[in-house]
Amino acid sequence: MKKSFSKNTDINKGLKDGLPIGLGYFSVSFAFGLSTVTAGFAVWQALIISMTNLTSAGQLAGVTLMAALASFTEIALAQLVINIRYSLMSISLSQKLDSSFTTTDRFFLSAFITDEIFAVASSYPSISRKYMRALAVLPYFGWTLGTLAGAVLGEILPADLVSSLGIAIYGMFIAIIIPPAKKSKAVLGVVLTAATLSSIIYYTPLSKYISPGFSIIICAIAAASLFAVLFPVKDKEECENE
């Protein structure tokens, strides 16, 4: 836990904390912009998706589903399942907001709760509106500009190279899941179960009846429920992994 800080330095502190997140987001959204244009979207479409969603896994799933002209129900359900973790972060953060937070602030700033912004903000015992606003600025611009740069480059680069870049976002997903799976057998089990179920659906006639979006939803809920029953998370473990 870091110390509480005075109101005057809240803006500086927020910007400073937001800078590394913004830089990281630039590279991640760069890959998103690139793969989105590769999937047949226009630059402005990639950009507007990033500006209105600010979430990596959800956006990729959304683009994949849109490219397949999935139903709006599927898109809504996929977003719900993939992004429901933000609800937990919102609940957690909502308990640390200081009295400077108005209801309007809550409506506005909740849009900027991401894994990283949550992680940084929740390291403080109390959070002011000034800090939260300043913290959100650079990640948001990093996310937007990275998408733009990636999308523009995706239209310029030769097809061979662009084709190989389609794997980039999956590379990042692997980079996110492998390290915790090394440390926790339960996480490894969740990953293997979800991957196995997803492969079973993909390679059997089940794929005729289950669309890619619903496949993700079914596999994820099944794997997470199974391990939540078999290996319930203890508080301590959860904190260590935040």
Binding site: A57, L60, A61, V81, I82, I84, R85, Y170, F173, I176, I177, P180, A181, A186, V187, V190, V191, L192, T193, A194, A195, L197, S198, S215, I216, C219, A220, I221, A223, A224, F227, A228, V233
Partner: peptide, 10 residues
């Protein structure tokens, strides 16, 4: 567990 499950399935 859900983020890991989602990413693996995707």
């Amino acid at each position: 567990y859900i983020p890991y499950a989602v990413l693996a399935a995707m």
